[in-house]
Amino acid sequence: MDTIVVAIDDSTDSLKSMEFGRRLASQLGVEVKAISVVPEQEAVTSCSAMLKARLEAHRFDNIALEVVANHSVKDYLGELASREDIGVCMMAYGRRPVPEMLIGSVTAGVVRRSRRPIFLCGPRYNGRAHQQVDVLAVCVDGSALSEKMLPYAAVLAKRLSARLQLLQVIDTSTVRKPTSLDHTDVSESAYLSGLARRVESEQALEVDWEVLHGDPADSIVNYLADSHNTMLAMTTHGRSGLSQVVAGSVSHEVVHEAPCPVAVLRP
């Protein structure tokens, strides 16, 4: 990853991702640029002038801006984010109650199209509490899908000189009440401790872990509530349509509510 590209539009909210993108690029030691996609070539000049003025007003005047014309913002940014030399940052903002609307349909579409993680700042993102990445927390649940994030996270943690942490949530609403607390603690930690040892061996990286209990989305958000300088990383099924309402609801809820940036991957 040689460049951090921040997708912006005419909203004030998109400047939150601009701030995060600049900080991430600085920590990685790479360049940062802003990009905006408009549907028609005729709109490029006026959009460029407007966005340059907005960037200058918010002290981003030293950041290069590119405005491109493409009929599909999702396709263009999805292809851009799939490149190994580029990391794409975006603002994720939406509304309830449909899960995809929690992060916005454009953002969800880019996540579905990209073959690499997308860096997202949700509406609760707190730039004052997360000015750099000291901890990279990866959500896993025992599935091969969730572990697809680990190679990306390990490489990123090394480049950021950040601590890699594994998080697993035990959903207490679906787990039978234990007959022995000690035995339950051992079985709950066995997966994470074993996975941590595997990652340490494969990636030559120190890893710690934490088991949470409760509703998956709520538990993760509550765990992050008082965190500082943390990035969360997680995978999502990210399917469109009705199947996505269940498959992607946890990741979308977390992105919408988390105070820290979230790297999302659809394997």
Rank of each mutant, 00 (worst) to 15 (best):
G29V: 10
A190F: 08
D75F: 07
L28W: 05
I220M: 11
N62M: 06
V199C: 00
S189K: 11
G241L: 13
D226C: 13
F60T: 01
R96A: 15
A53I: 07
A157R: 03
I4D: 15
G238N: 07
L192M: 02
S173L: 06
A64Q: 07
L192Q: 09
M18G: 09
M1D: 03
R54E: 06
C47S: 15
R124M: 14
A162Y: 00
S36I: 02
V186E: 08
E56H: 01
P267R: 01
R83K: 14
S36V: 01
D9Q: 04
E56A: 10
V262E: 01
G142S: 14
R197Y: 01
V5P: 06
E40F: 15
S26R: 10
E84P: 02
V254C: 04
F119N: 07
G87I: 07
L195A: 04
R95H: 15
S227T: 12
L28C: 10
D182W: 01
L164M: 02
V175D: 05
A157Q: 00
S11I: 01
L224T: 06
G94H: 04
A69E: 02
G194D: 06
L15D: 04
C139T: 12
V169Q: 03
T12E: 08
N229E: 13
P123Y: 05
A69C: 04
L166E: 02
K16C: 10
L15R: 05
S180N: 08
V186H: 09
A258Y: 02
Q244V: 02
V88D: 12
S219W: 14
E56K: 07
V38Y: 15
V140D: 14
R198V: 09
L136M: 10
E66D: 08
P261T: 02
S26N: 08
P261C: 02
M1A: 14
P123W: 03
D218V: 10
R198P: 00
K16A: 14
R95Q: 08
E79P: 00
A108Q: 06
A153Y: 01
V73L: 08
P151H: 09
A25V: 07
E56I: 00
A129H: 11
S187K: 13
S189E: 13
V186C: 01
M149S: 03
A69K: 02
L181V: 06
Y152R: 00
E66S: 11
A69P: 04
K177P: 00
I35R: 15
